[in-house]
């Protein structure tokens, strides 16, 4: 329940309202984390926000978070500068089971800021590429100037063993890439794959994840080989406060990463 203190060692902008920061622990070593897990970040006196960990899990000493300024706490987080102190509780929650998918064709589908929570799993897949049959990363964003981690996307795309497809919902004429929703891009990518051997990790707005899962299933990907990451109001992160309940699940403990078939019925219900 008590935050551990970290020092902000580096901050850098990602987008207009999105920044990344690297934190170094002050109260003992930073704990190991799994891809897809999150921390509760506490800027002094403001409150806590659940932010997924977006760095490399083989290097837990460099704790990296990417945050968009949307509320009081996340705005305070994006306003942090080098040398500031923050409190951290975590890591919490379930993870992308990327390590269990050896021999499979891996598909990452990241909509908007769904890419940061997937990045630790992407790093793992890239570092252990030979363990997997294929690796495809699909990233959809609103417009070309809101693509997340554009340099890394280019770097990943330059690898001969990795497919990277980027698509935007709208663009101006200078853009020569794809325009269209992420599911259109996903449908195309799946057309060339052995769908029954695909393991898919989908992260982004809930609507985008629902539609992506439908595309994956229509293509023949088994529904127990699709994982999504849910968002609900998170206060305590340890299953005590009840806010993040999603049907019988606490998103903080049972999620945020869920296997699609376990929550498929709930995804279609309003106000659940």
């Amino acid at each position: 329940m008590i935050p551990r203190r970290y020092r902000v060692v580096h901050v850098w902008p990602e987008l207009d309202d999105v920044m990344s920061m690297e934190l170094a622990p002050l109260d003992g070593p930073s704990p190991q984390f799994k891809p897809g897990q999150f921390n509760m970040i506490y800027p002094f006196g403001v409150g806590e926000a659940a932010i997924s960990i977006s760095g490399d899990m083989t290097d837990p000493g460099r704790l990296i978070h990417t945050t968009r300024a949307v509320g009081a706490v996340s705005s305070a987080i994006t306003g942090l500068t080098k040398g500031d102190m923050v409190g951290i509780r975590g890591p919490f929650g379930s993870h992308w089971p990327i390590e269990d998918q050896t021999g499979r064709e891996i598909v990452f589908v990241a909509g908007g800021l769904g890419l940061p929570p997937l990045r630790p799993a992407i790093y793992h897949a890239l570092q252990n590429r030979k363990d997997y049959d294929g690796l495809t990363i699909i990233h959809g964003a609103r417009s070309p100037d809101t693509l997340v981690y554009p340099e890394e996307l280019t770097e990943w795309k330059s690898r001969f063993d990795t497919e990277v497809d980027v698509t935007v919902d709208h663009a101006l004429p200078g853009w020569t890439g794809r325009v269209g929703v992420v599911t259109t891009c996903l449908d195309r990518a799946l057309a060339g794959m052995d769908a029954v051997n695909v393991s898919a990790f989908v992260c982004g707005p809930e609507v985008m994840m629902r539609f992506s899962a439908q595309s994956l299933i229509a293509a023949g990907v088994p529904c127990d080989r699709i994982w999504v990451s849910m968002e609900r109001n998170m206060k305590c992160a340890i299953g005590f406060c009840g806010h993040c309940q999603y049907g019988p699940d606490f998103v903080c403990r049972d999620g945020p990463v869920f296997r699609y078939d376990k929550i498929a019925r709930r995804l279609g219900l309003k106000e659940i």
Partner: peptide
């Protein structure tokens, strides 16, 4: 229908109000 569904998804501007 596939194209129409995709355009609907585009219409709601899913990335307009999302958080990390």
């Amino acid at each position: 229908a596939v194209r129409f569904r995709a355009l609907r998804l585009q219409l709601i501007d899913v990335y307009g109000c999302e958080v990390a």
